[in-house]
Design a protein around this nucleic acid. Structure first.
Lengths: 187, 187
DNA sequence: GTGGCATCTTGTCAGTGACAAGATTGGAGT
DNA sequence: ACTCCAATCTTGTCACTGACAAGATGCCAC
């Protein structure tokens, strides 16, 4: 092992994401990540400043991955919603950090950019809501809230067991509730 | 100040709730709460064992208050949903702890009891969903998800500013989306 | 090939959670 | 009134943490 690690920044972020996925954001330490990477206890500080700096990097990367995942789902409201839930479960660590603004710097330039990209994709997805009219913010926010709420409830383990063990399959009928009767009612 | 505080348990819980409301669950320490209560650094440990024990007490009390708030809202789905959001914002500290299972002992007897009580009220509220049929778990979970998601998005500050500054007023039209056209479509 | 700079290390400090052992006190039983 | 006991709180201690300062190393542009 040479003096310079070579890819410490990437390694530390990956270790952080893994640790967060295992036990959350509070149970590990920068020093533990440093040990795991075979590096001194102060090395991560050079790249991230402090713990909030590391989590800022995780959040920024998370929003980028999130935007990618939503974008790949297409233009249909249901598909975007399912992708929203799928991302939350499959990349749980990123998702949890992203929505914990007290943990990182929400005004960081890379965070703002990535979050903006994800937001635009979300808005364009809500346009395919049946019966959607221009400026119907209640409908768009209801769709967002439902996907976000379902994802959070799934992650906290609060949902009853009969919804099954496949989050995407369970989310679809729930999101469909938002479309029931809407087209028929001509709203 | 006598040797025995007299009401340390209550005082520590209140101080914890206040601190969580200010800056979250990670920025304060048991020792700081002890100092604030004018008590030695190890006194809280007697009542709660450790930090998780304290948060377990907060969560249990939170679910009790939550059940009270939902119960007081009546039987209408919309009113219960609005009460859900209002509780999340007005008692933010309790709400955040309640839905952070990694912070406390979710199997604690008092937690299980209080959470069960809140769950029953929630289920009975979903029965008033327009077009509700017996066993329509997608509808009930959609309602729960929407209220829960809206509350979380509000708390994280993710919602656009045009929704206003009154969470209850903003939540109502969003929750109403779930009822649009449903009765008319006879579903 | 050398100077500069990003990268990483060593050293240190106050603060933290957790535990052990001892001090204090109110109150129940007699 | 007295004793004793259990709940409550204190003091002392340990390994660990985040944060900072100062120094060592080695890659790379020139």
């Amino acid at each position: 092992m040479s003096y310079h690690h070579g890819n410490l920044r990437r390694t530390i972020i990956d270790a952080a994401v893994e640790a967060i996925g295992d036990t959350g954001t509070a149970t590990w330490s920068l020093r533990e990540l440093a040990r795991r990477a075979g590096v001194s206890h102060a090395a991560p500080a050079h790249h991230f400043g402090d713990k909030a700096g590391l989590l800022t990097a995780v959040a920024a990367e998370g929003f980028e991955l999130f935007a990618d995942a939503l974008g790949a789902a297409g233009d249909d409201f249901l598909d975007v919603g399912v992708a929203y839930v799928r991302f939350a479960v499959e990349r749980r660590a990123y998702f949890e950090v992203m929505w914990s603004p007290e943990l990182y710097d929400t005004d960081d330039a890379s965070v703002v950019r990535a979050r903006g990209r994800a937001g635009e994709i979300l808005v364009s997805g809500s346009r395919s809501l049946p019966g959607n009219v221009e400026g119907d913010w209640a409908g768009a926010i209801a769709a967002w809230s439902t996907a976000h709420g379902f994802a959070n409830l799934w992650l906290t383990g609060a949902l009853p067991s009969f919804v099954g063990d496949d989050p995407a399959a369970a989310a679809r009928p729930v999101l469909e509730v938002l479309t029931r009767g809407r087209a028929a009612a001509g709203e």
